[in-house]
Nucleic acid binder design. Sequence first.
RNA 1: GCCCCUGUAGCUCAGAGGAUAGAGCGCUGGCCUCCGGAGCCAGGUGCAAGGGUUCAAAUCCCUUCAGGGGUACCA
Length: 552
Amino acid sequence: MVKQKIADCLQQAVAKTQQEGTLAPGALPEIIIEHPQNPSHGDFASSLPLKLARTTRMPPLAVAEKIVEKISLPPEIDHTTIAPPGFINFTLRNEWLTEQVETILAAGDLYGNLVLGKGKNIQVEFVSVNPTGPLHVGHGRGAVLGSTLADVLSSTGYRVEREYYLNDTGNQIELFGHSLYVRYLQNFGKEADMPPDGYHGNYVIDLAKEIAEEHGDKFLNVPQKEALEAITELGFNKIINSVKEDLLLLNVKFDKWFSEKSLYKGEQYNKVMALLESGNYVTKKENAVWFASSLLGEDKDNVLVRSDGSPTYFASDIAYHYNKFIERKFDTVIDIWGADHQGHVPRMKAVMKALGQDPEQLKVIICQLVTLHRGKETLKISKRSGDIITLREVIDEVGADACRFSFLSYSAESQMDFDLELAKKQSADNPVYYVQYAHARIASILRLAQQRQIDYSQGDVSLLSTEPELTLIRHLIMLPEVIERVAANLEPHHLPYYAQALATVFHSFYKQCRVVSQDETLTKARLKLVRATQITLAKTLHLMGMTAPETM
RNA sequence: GCCCCUGUAGCUCAGAGGAUAGAGCGCUGGCCUCCGGAGCCAGGUGCAAGGGUUCAAAUCCCUUCAGGGGUACCA
C-alpha cells in the first residue's frame, strides 16, 4: 500500500541525511503515516520531523527540509509540502489515482482483499448462548460483530472457522428442562411447582403447549426421570432451531456447532484435567477441586469440580479451549463474550499459560451490554424474568439490514442504547438506506447505460480530472486500509462509517457530474468510475453482511 | 471494598499522541428543463472536573465525580 511506500522512502531519506551528516544520527522513531483532516494538506502526512527535532537538535521545519531534500518519491506521489510546525505532506498523482479505477474494475468482487493472514487458522466463536430461551438484542449485537469480523478476516487471507458453542449440559439446561416439564404438567392441569431459579418466561409455557400438542400426554405416564429427559431434549431442539432461524434472519451463519457434551464423551475433559494436574495447577480443598490461578498471578483460585462431583462451566471452558488450541490447532482464537463474562477473561488467560500456550493467541472481545428502549420506557431482555422483547421482534420491527448496520456502528466497548421508537421513526432517514440508496442509484445509472447500449469497456479513465471525480476515487482507494484496520484491531465498527462517507462523496459527485451525457468519451470514463464505486460499495455492504440492492 | 468498560454537539455515536475535534438524527433556510429528491448545498453548540507527561493530549498517567458490568461450588 501507498502508506508503506511513503514510510519506506522517509526512512531511506533519513538514513541518507544521517550518513551525509546533515542530520545528527539517532534511533528512528516508528514512522506513522496518517491522513490529514484537512484535504488541502494532501493525502498523507507524517510528523516525523517533529519527532526527530530533539535527537537532531534542530528545529522541526529545518529537519523536514533536510529530509525532503534527500527523499526519492514513489511513483504514486506527485509532490510533498512542508507545513508548520513540522509536517511533511504528500499528495497523490492524479494519473495514479485515475488508474486505480481500472485496478478496482479488474479486481471486481475481490477488491479490498488483502494477504495478511497467510493461511493461518483462526477461529471466531460467538453468540454461544445457552439454548434455554430466545435470543435478545444483546445476542444480536454479538452475532453481527462476530460474523462481520469473521468475514473480514477471511477476506484478508485467514482461514476462518465460525463456531457456536452449545451449552448442552450443565445446570442451566437442567433448570430449563425442569421448568419446561413443570409447564407441561400444568398444561394438563397437574399441580407442579417451578424450580426456585426456574425460567418464568412465557415462551416456556408456549413451548410446553407445543410439546403437549405434538406428543399428547404420553410423558405423564412414564417415570419422571425419563419424562424430564425427553422433554428437555425436545425443548432444547426447539430452542436451537429457533436460534438458528433468528441468526439466519440476521444473515449469520456458522461453520460448526460445537457440543459441550462432546467434551465429556470424548476425552478432552479428562486429558486436560490430567494435564493441569501434572503441572500442579490443581488443588483440593473444601471437598472441591480448584484451579490454582493464584500461581499464575490471579487474585484467587477457581472451582473446577464442585463438591457434588459436577464440573463447573469454567472446567468445561478449559477443556473447550484445550480442544481449540491443542486438538484442533487454531493459531488464534477470537471469543466474543458479553460484558457479564468480563471476569472470566483473566481466568482463561491464566489457563492458556497453564496449557503452555501464549495467552496472546486467545483474543477476547468483550461486547458491552445493550439496553433496549421504546421511547422513555426501558424494555426487559433478560430470559429469566417474565415478558421480554426478543431479537426476532426487533428484526421484524427494524429490518435485518438496519439492525446489522446499527449494531455494527457501535464499538464493542461502548454500551449501546437501542431505541426501538427511534430506530423505526428514523428508518426512512437511516444512514443504512442512504448507503443502500447510493448503490441502487448506481445500478440505475448502469441500467440506463445498458439500455442505450453504451459499451464503456474502452473508457479512458485519464479523463477523470474534476474535483468531485478525484475525491470519489480518493475514497474508493481507502477500502483496503479500512479492511486492514478492522482486521488488525478487530474493530468492525469502522465499516459502517466508511460506507457512509463513501456514499456521501458519491451522492455529491452525482449531483455535480452528469454521468450519461452528450459527451461520449467522458460518459464512458465516468461509467467506469461509477462501476468502480458500485464494486467498492457492494464489497463494503457485503462485508457487513448486508444486501446491496439494485432498486429500492 | 477491589477489578473491567464507558463519559465527546439537544439525542445516538465516530475519532490510529499531531494541524481548524467529525457523522447521523432533530432544527432553520435554499436547490428539480437533464442519469432515482430515500438526494444536494448552507447554517451551531461540545471533549465530565482537576492535576501531570509531551514540542503536541479527546487520546497516555494520577485523583475526583457519574453510568454500566463483574467480584458464585451460575453461565
